[in-house]
């Protein structure tokens, strides 16, 4: 008798506890969603729904000023047109060339980071200096470099003439050199960021590995290639992936610096897209370009993810 009552009490206590846990789980569920709700709402309305709409619009011929009546489904014609559009091909080619900025900037950044980390006074001072272009607005930077690169009287060409180069390139005014000029500016702006990330990576490498290598008599050069580089490979991978994706998104700089010119020599996909959408008012065509750009970014990211297994050590 007593036994069963105690069992019953136990039982009740157990279910009570289970109930409380379940109740708490329920509250947690509600609270959890309340915490992420604002973020989720904004992301849904400002990113997820628009990208779905973008996909739909890419199958239409449409000018968004005309309103919904002017909407006209044309299937894959926009995508088909992209295949034959010289301007788009040129923009795509420029984007591919611009990827070269990423490894160049990373290489400089790695050398600088290794030097700063090893043996320099005023570490913080140099960090601030190299980081300055990263925090400056692209509009101000573009205006500044437009003057620096001025073909006749700019200081860069003034310097080049000063050291005896008779006909320095016209930089932004010359279709042959405009893209290179843009890429120089991009290296200049991205180097500080890459360097700071590399510095953080370098500081994460345990000191005793180097001490062990010293004991074994490995030269600093050898240590750099057999310890530092492999240990930094996750950092390198991170910088490569964000850098390449970022290089496809450069808009502000191109817009203010060259507006894609001269003769389309610095036009990139995002700039060409902007022109199609807001200058020529081809909403459907621009959306198709946006989708292609997204697929391109996904593709490049995927390749790097697959490739990383071969060279990244975790």
């Amino acid at each position: 008798m007593e036994q069963t009552t105690r069992n019953g009490l136990n039982q009740r206590a157990k279910t009570g506890k289970a109930l409380r846990i379940r109740k708490q789980g329920f509250y947690d569920m509600i609270n959890g969603y309340l915490f992420i709700l604002p973020m989720l709402l904004l992301t849904m309305t400002l990113v997820v729904i628009p990208i779905i709409l973008s996909g739909l619009i890419s199958f239409t011929e449409w000018n968004f000023i005309a309103g919904l009546e002017g909407l006209n489904f044309i299937g894959f014609e926009n995508y088909n047109n992209l295949l034959h559009d010289e301007g788009f091909h040129r923009a795509l080619r420029n984007n591919v060339i611009m990827i070269a900025v990423v490894p160049v900037s990373m290489l400089f950044a790695l050398v600088l980071a290794a030097l700063i980390n090893q043996a320099t006074y005023f570490k913080d001072f140099f960090k601030v200096i190299y980081f300055m272009p990263f925090i400056s607005s692209f509009v101000a930077i573009a205006l500044l470099w437009r003057v620096l690169f001025h073909p006749n009287s700019g200081p860069i060409n003034g310097f080049l003439r000063g050291i005896g180069i008779e006909n320095p390139p016209l930089w932004l005014a010359d279709p042959q050199f405009a893209l290179i000029a843009v890429m120089i500016i991009m290296v200049w702006t991205s180097l500080g960021f890459n360097m700071v990330i590399y510095l953080a990576g370098l500081q994460g490498i345990p000191k005793d590995i180097y001490e062990a290598a010293d004991v074994d008599g490995a030269s600093p050069m050898r240590q750099f290639f057999t310890i530092t580089l492999p240990m930094l490979s996750p950092t390198t991978f991170f910088l490569l992936i964000t850098g390449v994706v970022g290089s496809f998104k450069v808009f502000d700089l191109i817009m203010v610096l060259t507006s894609g010119g001269p003769a389309g020599s610095t036009s990139v996909i995002v700039y060409y897209l902007y022109e199609a959408a807001f200058v020529n008012l081809q909403s459907g065509y621009a959306s198709a370009m946006g989708i292609v750009l997204l697929l391109l970014i996904l593709f490049v990211t995927l390749i790097q993810w697959v490739g990383q297994k071969k060279w990244v050590n975790y």
């Binding site: 990113v47 998104k249 902007y274 946006g290």
Partner: peptide, 21 residues
């Protein structure tokens, strides 16, 4: 993962629908 995945979407790809909305 859903929220993180939206980071891959270039802002220029959604300009037209954003503009309309």
């Amino acid at each position: 993962i859903l929220v993180l995945a939206t980071y891959m979407i270039p802002s220029q790809a959604i300009l037209v629908p954003q503009f309309m909305m």
